[in-house]
Structures are given as structure tokens and as C-alpha cells.
């Protein structure tokens, strides 16, 4: 799924790296616990989280993730934005809650470990 599609589906605002909206992600993970993200995520993924600190960006970077969605209108810190820009990670923010955001992405084909066949 293209990151631009995620933006549309979640009615999200782009915080940084807008030039990378054309990239694709192949799986998704929703969690506020970064160690769970580090344990279970595979493939090029998007991270959906309500956690706001610089370790969210570092975790995504370690996992080669290219997009993070902050739910419940959370705003990233200036440090997070700087780190995301350095790492080439698209940062999105949406008013939707975690459960709804994950459900919308899942029902549109972005599942836990792979994209559903169309």
C-alpha cells in the first residue's frame, strides 16, 4: 500500500518527508510498546502508535520502517521531526484512535505480515 493511500484513508496530516509519500509499505504494526515492535515486525512496515518520544523514531529506524502514524492527534516533538527527516521516515498524524486506524488499514488490505491478495 502506498503511504499516500494511508494518508488518505486515515485523513492524516503529513509532518515530514512528504516527498516519500509514493513509497510502498507491505505490513503494519500497532503498538505503544517499542519492544513489542522490535520483536514482531517483519518486512517493510508502517508503525501506528500513540507514543510520542524520540525512541519511536529510533525503533522505526532499527526496523527499516519508512512510515509512522501518530494516532489521537498526537504531535511529534521537534527532536522526533529532526530524527525522522534524517532517517527518511514519513511522519503522519491522524485524529483517529489506534483501534480505528488499525482497523481501517487492515480492512483496506494492509495486514499484519503481508498484504492481502486483491
Amino acid at each position: 500500500m502506498k503511504i499516500s493511500t494511508i494518508k488518505e484513508l486515515l485523513e492524516a496530516d503529513v509532518v515530514c518527508c512528504e516527498d516519500l509519500l509514493g513509497k510502498h509499505v507491505y505490513s503494519a504494526c500497532g503498538s505503544d510498546m517499542m519492544s513489542d515492535v522490535l520483536a514482531f515486525v517483519k518486512d517493510q512496515a508502517v508503525l501506528v502508535t500513540g507514543l510520542v518520544n524520540s525512541q519511536v523514531i529510533r525503533t522505526a529506524e532499527m526496523m527499516d520502517m519508512i512510515c509512522i502514524v501518530l494516532v489521537r492527534s498526537k504531535l511529534p516533538t521537534p527532536e522526533m521531526i529532526e530524527l525522522a527527516q534524517e532517517s527518511g521516515i514519513v511522519l503522519l498524524t491522524t485524529k483517529k484512535r489506534m483501534y480505528d486506524a488499525c482497523g481501517i488499514l487492515y480492512t483496506n488490505g494492509l495486514v499484519g505480515n503481508k498484504v492481502k491478495e486483491a
Binding site: M33, S35, D36, A39, N53, Q55, V56
Partner: peptide, 17 residues
């Protein structure tokens, strides 16, 4: 620490994994 996203008891198991 948990409120910052860590301390889930996954650190050492992840390192081994």
C-alpha cells in the same frame, strides 16, 4: 520507563532472538 514504550520484558529475549 513503561510509559516511554519500554520495559515490556522483551529486551533480553529480543537480543537472543
Amino acid at each position: 520507563i513503561r510509559s516511554m514504550g519500554f520495559g515490556a520484558g522483551m529486551g533480553l529475549p529480543n537480543m537472543k532472538r
